[in-house]
Amino acid sequence: MLRVLVGREIKLVFRRKSEILNPLFFFLIVTSLFPFGISPEPSVLGLLAPGVIWVCALLALLLSVDALYREDFDDGSLVQMVMSGVSPASIVFAKAITNWLVTGLPLILLSPLLGVMLNLDNDAFGAMVVSLLLGTPSMCLIAAIGMSLTIGLRRGGILLSLLVLPLYIPILIFGAMAVNAATVGQEFVGQLALLGAGLAFTASLAPWAAGAALRVSLSE
């Protein structure tokens, strides 16, 4: 069932290709604003790079999640799917997987390029990619909870970030900590392990919470 749902989501996304590219452009542009805003000095940028890349990836992911739900909600297919007996938990899980595949993964592939632009320490590239690999799926799953809670609201957009960003903070802390530790040559396996634990936790519980929220939002 999950495979069918993910297949459907991916097919839909690839019919609107701009929606794959927009979050990536956003990631690229926002990250390149920091040198203008702070300082083009390479040593300063190298210091800021881990946090900047993590925060921008997080915002790009958050912005991309709306597209997966909005159209399905507006044309009623989300209601139809729930009514046809598909468990809401697997619908949101499929959407989270798709979100990660079409936005999270390209962001991760793009991140080394931004690391070069921001003068990230050479030793930190591995830590950055691995921490993003472990952190972004949790963020997609948490965003699914927020999106399911706010889908029925007229002005859900800003509320979504209000609900979801506080829950992102622990992931952001450990992700950026891992990259920072790598730049100064310290051990960073501990932070990665915590990110992995977070992923196991969100992957096992978030779909249920998001599914329950979706059911509530659709019952209106």
Binding site: L149, T150, R155, G156, L159, L162, L163
Partner: peptide, 8 residues
Amino acid sequence: GHMALYNA
């Protein structure tokens, strides 16, 4: 967030 969601 809780209050905002409730009021929305």
